[in-house]
Design a protein around this nucleic acid. Structure first.
Length: 111
DNA sequence: ATTCTGACGTGGG
DNA sequence: CCCCACGCCAGAA
């Protein structure tokens, strides 16, 4: 793991921490915001390492369709969905309802 | 070194 | 909307 990646991870965590309660965003949005639009997968990988990090709501990060693709990386089978629903976000068939409505744009909030 | 695999996204059909 | 192919890059085997 290169030093730059570590910084990249840190940036991802920082952005993720800013996701407001009851809002969601996509991996691609974060990647683009960080200037790594072509490496959206790395954002997901960064989330893989977010387990150690406190205050990193990985459950608020989904793919572009609002699909809870990372649900299996959480403990249990529906922890991710539970967390989202506890924040007032409806989830049906592993998919966020009204995704565009709950979508949080990093550009809009962070500049 | 090589070949998958994957918490993704885009574009064509 | 769906499906498919491709680009992307870090790990695992």
């Amino acid at each position: 793991m290169k030093a730059e990646n570590k910084n990249f991870f840190q940036k991802v965590y920082e952005v993720a921490k800013h996701i407001p309660y009851g809002r969601v965003t996509s991996y691609g949005a974060i990647a683009k915001y960080l200037g790594a639009a072509r490496s959206a997968r790395m954002v997901g990988w960064a989330m893989n390492g977010s387990h150690n990090m406190p205050d990193v709501p990985a459950h608020r990060v989904v793919n572009r369709k609002g699909l809870l693709t990372g649900k299996r990386h959480f403990d249990g089978t529906n922890l991710m969905q539970q967390l989202l629903e506890s924040e007032g976000i409806k989830v049906i068939e592993n998919q966020v309802v009204d995704f565009d409505k709950h979508f949080w744009d990093p550009w809009k909030e962070l500049g």
